[in-house]
Amino acid sequence: MTLAIGSDTLRATISPLGAEMQSLEWQGKPLLWNGDAAFWAGRSPVLFPIVGRAEGDVIAVNGRAAEMKQHGFARRSTFDLVEASETACTFVLSDSDATRAVYPFAFRLSLTHRIAANRLSVTATVENRDDTPMPFGLGFHPAFLWPLPGAEGAHRITLDNRGEPALVRLEGGLIGETKLPSPFVKGALPLTPAQFTEDAMIFPEGAGEGLVYAADTGPRLHFRFENLPNLALWQKPGAPFICIEPWHGMAARAGAGPEIAARPYSLTLAAGDTATFGFSVEVI
């Protein structure tokens, strides 16, 4: 059963499964992808304790190997609701026998969705409750409609920092070694389906802390990112959505081994420490 939060103009529903947002509506119009399984059943999953794929779907922690599917287990896990109001809710996932079998740590992952006026914020807090350092990656994977409701003209991504970050591609689901020329020009990227025939566009660094997704007319979505240095853009070929994915951590590199700590941009959290990550989207 989903939980609804919202303001007079912006409303969202969140499911305990994956603490995943199921809908986001502005002035009664949908902004979030509906999860049609004919294209992609996801809507806005949280990625933990890895982002992306592991070679052979096998990860390791200090030499201990286990099978782990793409993007980790959080998105397939049921979270507990610990706090709720008309405008916010917090769901929590803690370690269990099932998680420790593949990821040998005591942890707590909390996910808070909050709405104020035309702004949604999503905050993830990771706590290492173990007595040893804990490697992990954390990312968000929200899918927004393309085209946006009421929008006309070409849709584009415009980086707040007007940067031109280098592009990398996935090779067999793993991060490629080759840095490609940036598709951004002075921070602007007009979107076309052809850009995604080779899977996601990934920008390991330089995309900055915010961007705008919009068309010539219609709603403009301004995103802000906290502690999420990597950016990916993805569309399932032919699907009417675009995923705007801020991450701290990426897929493994081919041949680099299965250790989570060796994955690009992975973090290692000291015993007892916490780390916070977040994104917001405001309709402007």
Rank of each mutant, 00 (worst) to 15 (best):
L3G: 02
L3R: 07
T9K: 03
R11K: 15
A12E: 06
A12T: 03
I14N: 03
L17A: 03
E20F: 02
L24Y: 09
K29W: 06
L31V: 14
L32E: 04
D36I: 13
A38G: 15
W40P: 00
A41I: 08
L47K: 03
P49L: 05
G52E: 02
G56Y: 05
I59M: 06
V61K: 01
G63Y: 09
A65W: 00
E67F: 05
E67Y: 05
H71R: 01
H71A: 07
D80H: 10
A84N: 07
C89T: 14
C89N: 12
T90S: 11
V92I: 13
D97A: 15
R100D: 05
R100T: 14
F107I: 06
R108Y: 02
L109I: 09
S110W: 09
L111I: 15
T112P: 04
I115E: 04
S121K: 06
T123D: 14
R129F: 08
P133F: 15
P133D: 13
L138G: 00
L138S: 02
G139S: 05
F140K: 08
P142L: 10
F144Q: 03
P149S: 10
A154D: 09
I157C: 09
R162H: 13
E164W: 03
A166Y: 08
V168W: 00
V168L: 06
E171H: 10
I175V: 15
I175N: 07
E177G: 11
L180K: 03
P181M: 14
P183C: 05
V185N: 13
P190E: 09
T192D: 10
T192F: 01
P193T: 03
G206C: 08
Y213S: 07
G218K: 01
G218Y: 03
R220A: 13
L221D: 11
H222L: 15
H222F: 11
R224K: 13
R224I: 03
R224V: 12
L228T: 04
P229A: 11
G238P: 00
P240W: 08
F241I: 11
I242A: 02
C243I: 02
C243D: 01
I244Q: 00
P246M: 08
A252Y: 00
E259F: 03
A262I: 13
P264L: 07
Y265F: 15
Y265A: 14
A271D: 12
A275F: 06
V281Y: 08
